[in-house]
């Protein structure tokens, strides 16, 4: 390729060529600054004492960890091993051993010990309730999304099948799930299905399924219906000639789907899928009603104890934004990669 040699430009020519672009960039930043200033002004005007310094404790806090003896006896020996100390306590020929961090050891060999005596005491950093909630939201959403993709793909393929049993089952599922409130679906999963299943399990002597998994199931079932419609639209947007070309080469329907149709459809459905999954992350906030302490429920609990609704709900929104924005960026990265390959 040939490049024209650039003539030295004066500031006025530069302004004429690029000026209007940078003018509108400036307009954008002024706009954002304006909104931010207004928000800040509003927060100052609200009759509320802002105590942001009290927020970090809900992310992590220092906890005092004490290891107590459960028996009465004499410490016969202490062995040091990779920064840990193993304490042996003997009582009437019976030996019990405790492993504690060596640095925080508060006893020595030969001490007489009574139940409840402190063997070691140290401070540990613990994740706070908001961080735990954030983690749970992330975990629940990711599992639901993974199952939802599989369910959606299968349902989407059934939806375009010519077999009425498959097709009508898919339509029924999609319409029922899309047409009813997620809140009600969660109730049904936990209080109806959950009760029945757990009763059956307990009669069979099996362990109970905790609410978390009913929550995950309801979200996966919910998002699967939306994914199915996205998959269907993606497949149908691929020109009919692609399927004809693949089939006329002797490929089976499954081969043609796998090698020709789905790889092309995937590119087109990534953007709407990302939107759906962002929605799902936010919808997971409804799981609080069946006692799953995800981010929103965690925030609500902290609000009731700390009486700091403003700071906490802002933080809650910001945490959701971090999750959704990361997902959005990840999908954009995928889109770019797929287009290149």
């Amino acid at each position: 390729m040939r490049y024209k040699k650039m003539a030295p430009t004066s500031i006025t020519t530069w302004l004429r060529i690029r000026g209007s672009y940078y003018f509108w960039v400036l307009v954008f930043f002024l706009f954002i600054f304006g909104i931010a200033s207004f928000l800040y002004y509003a927060t100052v005007k609200v009759d509320y004492v802002w105590r942001w310094y009290r927020i970090p404790q809900y992310f992590y806090y220092h906890d005092k960890v004490e290891i107590l003896s459960e028996i009465e006896g004499k410490i016969t020996k202490i062995i040091q091993k990779n920064g840990q100390a193993v304490v042996f306590i003997q009582e009437d020929g019976q030996v019990k051993q405790y492993t504690v961090p060596f640095k925080s050891l508060q006893v020595s060999e030969g001490d007489l010990i009574y139940p409840g005596d402190v063997l070691s005491s140290h401070e540990a950093l613990r994740p706070g309730i908001l961080l735990l909630g954030l983690w749970l939201t992330l975990k629940v959403s990711m599992i639901a999304i993974s199952i939802g993709i599989i369910m959606g793909l299968i349902t989407g393929l059934c939806r375009i099948s010519s077999n009425p049993a498959l097709k009508w089952t898919a339509i029924t599922y999609i319409e029922l799930v899309r047409g009813s409130p997620l809140l009600v679906q969660i109730f049904i999963w936990y209080f109806v299905l959950g009760t029945v299943l757990n009763a059956m399990f307990s009669r069979a002597g099996l362990p109970q399924i905790p609410p978390l998994w009913y929550g995950v199931a309801s979200l996966a079932f919910f998002v699967g219906a939306y994914v199915a419609e996205i998959v269907r639209a993606g497949i149908q947007s691929i020109h009919r000639g692609q399927m004809e070309a693949a089939r006329s080469l002797g490929m089976t329907y499954a081969n043609a789907m796998q090698h020709v149709i789905l790889p092309q459809a995937l590119r087109r459905i990534l953007p709407p899928l990302a939107g759906q999954f962002i929605s799902l992350i936010k919808d997971s906030s409804l799981l609080g009603i069946i006692a799953i302490r995800e981010l929103t429920k965690a925030t609500r609990e902290v609000v009731t104890t700390s009486l700091q609704p403003y700071e906490l709900w802002f933080v809650c929104a910001l945490l959701y934004l971090i999750l959704t924005f990361s997902l959005s960026m990840f999908v954009q990265y995928l889109e770019r990669r797929i287009v290149i390959s």
């Binding site: 020109h239 692609q242 004809e244 070309a245 089939r247 006329s248 080469l249 002797g250 020709v260």
Partner: peptide, 15 residues
Amino acid sequence: RAEIGIVFQSFNLFP
């Protein structure tokens, strides 16, 4: 079909 080749008006290559 594997024994019958067909060439379409709109090519239908896999893009």
